[in-house]
Design a protein around this nucleic acid. Structure first.
Length: 426
RNA sequence: GUGAGAGUAGCUCAACUGGCAGAGCGCUGGACUGUGGCUCCAGUGGUUGGGGGUUCAAGUCCCCUCUCUCACCCCA
């Protein structure tokens, strides 16, 4: 390849027409469903005060420690390209005085400076929902069920909801301490030697040690998080499951499922597809009842999830054929071309997608372009047609031609639309 | 951030142990002077990702760098 001067930054993607079209369709479907559950869409700024993310996500999380795109403005204030949507949406909810209960949804791009791999980019798009202001097992179940339904509608296969309750912050704190005590004790009597990763996890996120491929199995008789949940937490969790059963959501309890971000409590979940590779989480979320208060707002319970658009697109969507102009106007010489540009303008005033070539080209070459663009009809304007005050309309699929007066172009277009509608193609 | 593999025409990929950079598809034109898709013919196409080194000679070997892929960490 010729060496270009500029290439896109690592881990980013250009959304070229094929993928753009595909996204539009996919998002249309997703947004329709989300609205059916009573959500309203919002957009927040791409960057926020760095502090917002550090305080809400947690300063010892990977996101904050090594993945944020942070920069300073001219006055030395620190800003960060959003690495996730929940904190900004909650901030917007509070700042705009939106009245709870509120169901907010978004389609926004996120930025994390990770090493890219399949299904993991530095700039990526998420569809997310946040149900703010209600604490009831029904909401938890509804949010999860909606995510599950959306993925199913999109054609994702072998879906499983992984479900857990990580308790209140206090309960989790108590458990963390018990787990660490247990581990420290075993390390001291020499019966346990943690791997390098887990030594690091001890300080950062000890709950993850249970999930470690090396050390996890060694901790079979460690205390379990469930033992530390209060009767209320357990009851709440059981009710969530009850509703999920009722709505026939395929879930599996996953006691080792924990959330990386600090603001989560109680219900935590992921939806994975067992059909795809290592990055199999299509959607992840949980409850975060203390976030609003942490940000200086009134105590407001909330729950939500985010879904990675690229992962869906990569695995479940095929490239669609992009529709071209409806009419492609072709000419045979300079005279007919002069006539045709007038006709083209008229067609466009009728708001019918249309185009033609301006460079002098043979009719054959023009037809070829029409075909390549996926045009529906070629409109041939030749001297014979002009003499008859008509145009020749050639159907590019069937090859059938008809000689009609100009204004029939509107009728032909409308008939085509009606036909497509009848077939449910629009 | 750690580890491994890869990068050759617009795209998909060839080129034996270092020895003239190729094919298919695409694109342009023609066969068919006003008719696309099928077929046939011709043409177009490259600093072999970039930089440096070894060598008579480097796509091929060595070093650096960029990007992609896979895995780890972690996550959507």
């Amino acid at each position: 390849m010729k060496t270009l001067k500029y290439r896109r930054p690592r881990g980013t993607r250009d959304i070229i027409p094929e993928e753009y079209e595909l996204r539009e369709r996919l998002l249309e479907k997703v947004q329709k469903t989300i609205r059916a559950y009573g959500y309203k869409f919002i957009i927040t700024p791409v960057f926020e005060r760095t502090e917002l993310f550090i305080r809400s996500i947690g300063d010892s999380t990977d996101i904050v420690e090594k993945e944020m795109y942070t920069f300073k403005d001219k006055k030395g204030r620190s800003f960060t390209l959003r690495p996730e949507g929940t904190a900004p949406v909650m901030r917007a909810f509070l700042e705009n005085g939106i009245v709870p209960p509120a169901k907010l949804a978004y389609v926004m791009n996120m930025f994390r400076a990770e090493r890219p791999q399949k299904g993991r980019l530095r700039e990526f798009w998420q569809v997310g929902v946040e149900a703010i202001g209600v604490k009831d097992p029904l909401v938890d179940a509804e949010v999860i069920e909606m995510g599950y339904s959306i993925l199913k509608e999109l054609g994702a296969e072998k879906l499983v909801v992984l479900l857990n309750s990580i308790g209140s912050i206090d309960e989790r704190q108590a458990y963390k301490k018990a787990l660490l005590d247990y581990i420290n004790e075993k390390e001291q009597d020499g019966s346990l030697d943690l791997c390098e990763d887990c030594k690091r996890r001890k300080n950062k996120n000890p709950l993850r040690i249970l999930d470690c491929k090396i050390d996890g199995p060694k901790l079979k008789d460690a205390p379990s998080l469930t033992e530390f949940l209060s009767p209320e937490s357990l009851k709440y969790f059981n009710e969530v499951k009850k509703y999920l059963d009722r709505w026939k959501v395929n879930y599996r309890e996953e006691p080792r499922l924990v959330r990386g971000l600090d603001y989560y409590n109680h219900t935590a979940f992921e939806i994975v597809s067992e059909k795809i590779g290592v990055q199999d989480t299509l959607l992840g979320g949980g409850r975060y009842d203390s976030l609003a208060e942490d940000m200086g707002g009134p105590a407001t319970p909330a729950i939500g999830w985010a879904m990675g658009l690229e992962r869906i697109i990569d695995y479940f969507y095929r490239i669609p054929i992009i529709p071209g102009p409806f009419y492609f106007v072709t000419t045979v010489n300079e005279f007919s071309k002069g006539y045709a540009i007038g006709l083209l303008k008229k067609i466009r005033e009728w708001k019918i997608p249309s185009d033609m070539t301006f460079e002098p080209k043979s009719l054959k070459a023009q037809m070829k372009i029409a075909d390549r663009l996926n045009a529906v009809k070629a409109v041939i304007v030749g001297e014979d047609e002009i003499k008859l005050q008509k145009v020749r309309v050639r159907d590019l699929e069937t090859g059938k031609e008809e000689l009609v007066p100009e204004k029939d172009l509107v009728r032909i277009y409308e008939e085509y639309l009606a036909e497509r509608r009848k077939k449910g193609l629009i």
